[in-house]
């Protein structure tokens, strides 16, 4: 896997954890939310391998549930390990985001 896609994957994982933390979500809804936030470059299907991996690492748990209006769906919620991983991601993200922003700002300004 290229560095670029590895980087993107790590960030996408963090985003998914964050969305799931806000409220238990199912696959389709999750991919729509990512798009709403503007991550339109990410193909819809790419969340499923990540969801599987996050389940395997027990950061999220999936449960088949009847939805209020629709069919039986698999809803994901954050586990305790998932909460910790999200916190970890936020710190790492902050430590990258600020320096990168500063660099880009200086170049533009």
């Amino acid at each position: 896997m290229s560095l670029r896609s590895q980087l993107l994957k790590g960030i996408l994982e963090g985003c998914i954890l964050s969305i799931i933390k806000q409220q238990p979500t199912y696959g389709y809804e999750l991919s729509m939310k990512l798009q709403e936030f503007g991550l339109t470059d990410i193909s819809e299907g790419s969340i499923y391998p990540i969801l599987l991996r996050l389940q395997k690492e027990e950061l999220i748990a999936g449960e088949m549930r009847e939805s209020e209006s629709g069919p039986k769906r698999k809803y994901y919620s954050l586990t305790e390990e998932g909460q910790a991983a999200l916190l970890d991601f936020k710190q790492q993200w902050a430590s990258i985001k600020a320096p990168v922003d500063r660099m880009i700002d200086r170049e533009e300004g």
């Binding site: 819809e44 299907g45 499923y48 088949m64 769906r73």
Partner: peptide
């Protein structure tokens, strides 16, 4: 569980006019 999840996704995308290949 995964297969059903993928199917649900295609069905919803289909309603909104997107194909499985696009998803």
């Amino acid at each position: 569980e995964l297969l059903l999840e993928l199917l649900e996704h295609v069905l919803q995308a289909q309603q909104e006019g997107r194909t499985a290949a696009q998803v």
